[in-house]
Design a protein around this nucleic acid. Structure first.
Length: 573
RNA sequence: CGGGUUGUGGCUCAGCUUGGUAGAGCGCUGCGUUCGGGACGCAGAGGUCGGGAGUUCAAAUCUCCCCAACCCGACCA
């Protein structure tokens, strides 16, 4: 294509409302424009890259034997009611009513739809099956942000596996895992898998693929020494044993006027250090007031609480609810001898004694608390959030916490959806068995953004050949020089005939403008044709990544470019 | 949904405190000069000042209501 005829609205200034680098560059380079919050138009360049990302995903899915579908984006409510997610998805699902008054939903994922179709499977002999689509999802995100990283309407590759047994699921899961590794390699993304919470998808284990980036929304605990990596929603660490504090063995109430924080109690005469305190949080789980206990210096991870309890709606109690439940305000709360409320406690409190906690009367605390003796713990679980510097659970090295972008997520679902929708097949013994399912997602636009987050410099995007909208650009320095244009056209034809996505920058602009634009939009290779070089039979070849120009003979620059493009296309293969 | 910020031409912003003819840079159009890293001169086009109501002789500016976007938190590919 000729640049002079394309719509590539590059911007010299960074748009004021863009914070993330990928967002700034996508807008500046003329890849996207916002329609409203969380909804973006893909412009020609953006669409080309987006399509290339999707096609890489398709190729790797096809390579593991998956089959492509396209399902409707709009679904009947009844389907979601069958799985129970009409209720559990809550506010995040876009819902509408048609002229007949029927409830409809815009699909935020397609477990139900694929599972419905899987009912046409009748025999174990037809398994395994792996089905996928690249389709638009709608999610009423509470807060769209960072350009393409978090939006309300986006294309996702979602795939689903159907197996007769767990061993089959393990294999399908592993195939997806390996396919994802290849996909991210071809995108040039430094992605790695971490154990994750499965959230609203339900089911068993799940792995997230993460790419470190300051624009990321997930915190991942990473061991610098071994390969331990986990989302903080799941991460644990090895905690050193805490020697019990000196103090009474029996419960002893003491006055703590005005002391309403852990920190204040730690400094208070007769108080206790944070690690000797029990922090008592009053939470409302699906409408039920519940006490959550942690060590004083530990933070609750809400996702862990949600995973441990299965609650859908979790919020801190209002002060009035707290007073009604315990008779005291936050700052003097404790679970000692509380039996009318469910008490959930973090593992780090197990067996602890000589502890200090609130006495459920404003201005009073207990010391001499023995967790086993004085707290009626209904559920022990891991609730605390791992923090930087804690010892790795595997090797003891100090953990780092890194911000990451979640670029893919693979789940073992089990039979949640096949049970709900009655999808089953006969096994070899003629017994009806529910399909064992897995589901696997990759957001296309988010991956594009993630690539930009990890491949850019001060001049703009530095896209890998695999997904750059154009692989090479021929920049004509002086378009009114007949010889320059003749050579450019000839080179352009040569590259096109070899299947290279090549752009001919034939705009009557100053060279600086053309160089800057080519760098901003991130085209991997630039061939510059100017009268001076051509007089010596030379073209100039500039890889975007290094920006180091080299002279190449005009007669050879086409071949040279083709070879480098081919090499670039092989990235990760 | 809670907290914060911002809405002025295609983009970046000034003007608002102290009400009085709507501005700059970039971009765009024309002409000329220039021509290998975002040129220069001259002449132009382009704005319901987010929307509505109110106060006032007079509102971008003051008041109220609404809307939208962005950022920080709770959610996810």
């Amino acid at each position: 294509m000729r640049w002079s005829t394309l719509f590539i609205p590059t911007l010299r200034d960074t748009p004021g409302d863009a914070e993330a680098v990928s967002h700034q560059l996508l807008v500046r380079a003329g890849y996207i424009r916002q329609l409203h919050a969380g909804h973006y138009s893909l412009l020609p360049l953006g669409l080309r890259s987006h399509t290339k990302v999707a096609n890489i995903v398709r190729q790797e899915m096809d390579a593991i034997g998956a089959q492509e579908f396209v399902h409707p984006a709009m679904h009947p409510a009844s389907l979601w009611q069958q799985s129970g997610r009409w209720e559990t998805m809550g506010q995040e699902m876009f819902r509408l009513v048609d002229r007949k008054g029927a409830d409809l939903a815009l699909g935020m994922t397609h477990e139900e739809v694929f599972t419905l179709l899987s009912k046409e499977l009748g025999s174990y002999k037809q398994l395994p099956q792996m089905w996928y689509q690249v389709q638009t999802k709608f999610r009423d995100e509470p807060r769209p942000k960072a350009g393409l990283l978090r939006v309300r309407e986006f294309d996702m590759k979602d795939s689903y596996s159907f197996d007769i047994d767990d061993a089959g699921l393990d294999l399908s899961f592993q195939k997806h895992h390996d396919a994802y590794v290849r996909i991210f390699a071809r995108l040039g993304l430094p992605a790695f898998p971490v154990v994750a919470s499965s959230g609203a998808m339900g089911g068993g284990s799940s792995l997230e693929f993460m790419v470190p980036s300051p624009a990321g929304e997930d915190d991942v605990a990473m061991c610098p020494n071994c390969d331990y990596r986990a989302n903080v929603e799941r991460a644990t660490s090895a905690l050193p044993d805490v020697a019990p504090k000196d103090g009474p063995d029996e419960l002893e109430r003491f006055a703590t006027p005005g002391i309403v924080t852990i920190a204040a109690l730690a400094k208070f005469e007769g108080g206790a250090g944070a690690i000797h305190q029990i922090k008592t949080l009053v939470m409302v789980l699906d409408g039920t007031v519940t006490l959550v206990c942690l060590r004083g210096d530990h933070q609750l991870n809400l996702q862990k609480l949600q995973d441990a309890t299965g609650a859908i709606d979790i919020r801190p109690a209002e002060e009035a609810e707290t007073v009604a439940a315990l008779g005291a305000k936050p700052g003097s709360l404790g679970a000692v001898n509380v039996s009318h409320l469910r008490v959930i406690a973090d593992e780090a409190l197990r067996g602890r004694y000589h502890m200090t906690t609130g006495a459920n009367e404003d201005g009073w605390h207990w010391r001499g608390v023995s967790v086993d003796r004085d707290l009626h713990v209904a559920q022990w679980t891991d609730l605390r959030e791992v923090t930087k510097g804690e010892p790795c659970i595997n090797c003891g090295a100090k953990l780092d916490i890194a911000k990451c972008i979640e670029v893919g997520h693979i789940f073992k679902l089990g039979t949640k959806y096949s049970d709900a929708l009655g999808a089953s097949v006969l096994d070899a013994d003629g017994v009806l068995k529910p399909l064992i399912m897995g589901c696997y997602g990759i957001g296309i636009g988010r991956n594009l953004a993630a690539v930009i987050e990890s491949h850019h410099d001060e001049k703009g995007m530095v896209l890998p050949v695999t997904i750059a909208p154009y692989e090479a650009v021929i920049t004509v320095v002086k378009v009114d020089d007949a010889e320059s244009m003749r050579i450019a056209e000839s080179l352009y034809d040569e590259l096109r005939s070899e299947g290279i996505d090549v752009l001919l920058d034939d705009r009557d602009e100053r060279p600086g403008v053309k160089f800057a634009d080519a760098e901003l939009v991130g085209i991997p290779f630039r061939i510059t044709l100017g009268p001076k070089g051509l007089a010596n039979g030379m073209a100039e070849f500039t890889p975007r990544e290094t920006r180091q120009s080299a002279d190449v003979a005009v007669g050879e620059v086409g071949r040279y470019t083709i070879e480098l493009v081919h090499e670039g296309r092989r990235l990760g293969r």
